[in-house]
């Protein structure tokens, strides 16, 4: 892991913590962006953590690009010694896998896909060595995920699964991006899952939908009244498979203003996690489902 600093024009510094994805790189990025926020550097206008990198936007009339760079290098030196522990939330996200809406959409854009004769799930299962789509779906929801970045469009979380490298699922993006993706599609590209917060273009493979809105610019949905975006980097997500009936029930509850996502607060330690991943994930689940 070698940190690389590069300017994005005269208003941004792009910091690549590592070229490849890992939880270590994500934690260092999160720790450095927290460091920038805590320091309250004058002239900083945006602090954007990403999966294995981050970006600072600054006003060069207030702080010169070289001064900004020097500040970040100082923060990196401190971040080296930071303990990899965060206070965060664990959230259950219900997913209706193999739903009719993403199926209809993926059939419409078949000519842009690597396997025009199958479905996105069949293809993902095959290239990851699973016997069938259901086995793949099980791997997708059995271990939790870190929200490692929020972006692309408003409120869209990128998620990285909390398993060792050997068990990471990897699926390429569509050969050519689609012009349409249903709202709240659970997608996959590279080693990341995502949840499309709004309907629109997209290049990730489509596996299902969640009935739980995660972005509401009108701030009318009960749990999005305080802020229109649900996720933030560092949140932990557990996908829970649901059927059509449960999906529709949740949709009705959201509309009635009675749906509350299952959310608990939790302390996460990367060092403890790395000692025994499965046991640690088991404990996280106990926090989520214990009352």
């Amino acid at each position: 892991m070698k940190t690389r600093y590069t300017f994005g024009g005269d208003e941004h510094i792009f910091v690549e913590v590592d070229e490849e994805m890992s939880l270590e790189a994500f934690f260092k990025s999160l720790s450095m962006t927290n460091g920038v926020r805590d320091k309250g550097i004058k002239g900083v206008t945006e602090i954007c953590p990403a999966n294995a990198s981050f970006q600072i936007k600054f006003d060069p009339d207030v702080i010169s690009p070289n001064e900004m760079l020097a500040e970040l290098k100082k923060i990196e030196a401190t971040a080296e010694h930071a303990d990899h522990t965060i206070e965060t939330r664990i959230v259950e996200v219900p997913v209706f896998y193999k739903d009719p809406w993403t199926h209809e959409t993926l059939m419409r854009f078949r000519e842009r896909h690597q396997d025009p004769n199958g479905t996105d799930l069949d293809y993902a299962a095959k290239i990851n060595g699973f016997d069938n789509a259901d086995e793949f779906i099980k791997a997708h929801h059995s271990a939790p995920w870190f929200v490692s970045m929020v972006g692309f469009v408003a409120g869209l979380p990128f998620l990285y699964q909390m398993v060792d490298r050997a068990r990471q699922l990897e699926v390429p993006k569509y050969l050519r991006p689609r012009t349409d993706t249903p709202k709240q599609t659970v997608g996959y590209g590279g080693c990341f899952s995502c949840i499309y917060s709004v309907r629109g273009a997209g290049g990730y493979q489509m596996f299902g939908v969640t009935p739980m809105p995660i972005y509401d610019p009108k701030q009318e949905i009960s749990y999005l009244k305080d802020f229109m975006v649900f996720f933030k980097p560092g949140d932990i997500v557990k996908f829970a498979p649901i059927d059509h009936t449960t999906h529709d029930k949740i949709v009705a509850e959201v509309e009635a203003g009675t749906y509350q996502p299952r959310v608990k607060t939790v302390t996460f330690s990367l060092d403890d996690f790395n000692k025994d991943i499965d046991a640690y994930n088991q404990k996280l689940e106990e926090v989520l489902y214990g009352d």
Binding site: H12, E19, M21, A52, K173, G190, C191, F192
Partner: peptide, 16 residues
């Protein structure tokens, strides 16, 4: 790792 298969792919990051 994590970037995707095309030589123009990066591990998803921020866009200035």
């Amino acid at each position: 790792f994590g970037a995707g298969s095309d030589p123009s792919n990066i591990v998803d990051g921020c866009y200035p």
